[in-house]
Simulated scan of single mutants.
Amino acid sequence: MSEPINQPTFNRLIDDAPWERYRRPYVRDLAYALACPNVLTQWLDFAPHENTHAISVHSAHFWQSQFKAYEQRLTELDTTNDYQALTRYLLKRPSPNRLGFHFEGLLSFWLEDGFARKLHPYETLANNVQLYNGKQTVGELDLILYNHDENLVEHWELAIKFFMGSAPFEPVNWVGINANDNLQRKMTHMQTKQFRTVWVDTKDKGQVKIDKRYGIIKGRFFLPIDTNNFSYPTWLTPSFPLHEWCDKKDEAGLVTIDMTTLRAAHYIEWFTKRGFYDERHDYDGQQQSAWSDDELMLRTGLYFVGDRPIVIYPRQPNE
């Protein structure tokens, strides 16, 4: 375990968000998808008895370097008509309103646009490769890339996760709004399903053999609101975005939240906040939609208190 971090340091980590400098929403999302580190410092093998392949993770330094290399291009997208190329790319993809597909679209745009501009060495060979069992589709592979620097075919499997944590803060203790979804379960699925593939058919390069596999899991994690000190597990990247969640029945926690500035977030704001929703915000109407029918507790979901994201979440899934 690393040393605990105190509350001032915790707040500094939350505020360290370079994507906030961009004005246009999809550019902010793209900057976030790049600058946010992988949640993992190392891959954890939750299926040691399965015949699976070694899985790597990119370091926080890797993603920071990619963000820096693409920074000028982000500014162009944020200040010129080139923004239209990004929006058209994202909106023509299947299910652009689903967070996972949006994340995949953002990284796919960066891969194609950045390679064309010689800002990174990753050439896209294939994406969304369907996996079959006979004639039945059983899954797909997200990205098959050729790394021109290392002369390797790489398989990148992507996940965007927004998980609430509880002690002892092991991967199984980080769960989503759907309580059946947790970090350990997602990693096990990736390892035993998608990462078993060895050969892939591509449109232009024929059949290629995967040389290296990367698990890319980004997003945001939320700590219980009463957490004053938190010790990072060795697997959790220290610069990964951390925020707070509050039990919807925790009266002591709820009174610390300024309800006069509370705003329910729109789904896309799990990525980055949209300021124009603040301008359209009517507190009385927003309050009505945020509270449950009996008006005794807030609905489960993401909120903003000013610019600070916070999740209201039931500690017990069935409560």
Rank of each mutant, 00 (worst) to 15 (best):
Y26N: 13
N180E: 09
Y303W: 05
V27H: 01
D29T: 15
S95R: 11
E76K: 08
H266A: 13
P96R: 11
G285Y: 05
V27M: 05
V311W: 01
L30W: 02
F195Y: 06
I216F: 06
F195V: 06
W156H: 08
L125Q: 02
P96F: 10
H148N: 15
F195P: 01
E295T: 14
A264N: 07
F276W: 15
Q316W: 13
P8Q: 10
P121H: 09
L223R: 04
P233Y: 08
R263W: 01
A69F: 02
Y22P: 05
T124Q: 15
K186A: 07
T260V: 10
H49P: 10
L74D: 00
D113Q: 05
F240M: 03
T256V: 07
T192G: 01
D293A: 11
T79P: 12
R299Y: 03
P241A: 03
P241G: 02
R88C: 07
I55R: 05
M259L: 11
R196I: 03
F62C: 11
N51C: 12
Y26W: 13
C36F: 04
L74E: 00
G105S: 07
W199M: 15
E170Q: 12
L296W: 13
G219E: 00
P224C: 03
T75V: 14
E112G: 06
W110Q: 07
E269Q: 11
A126S: 13
M1L: 09
Q194K: 11
R73Q: 10
R299D: 07
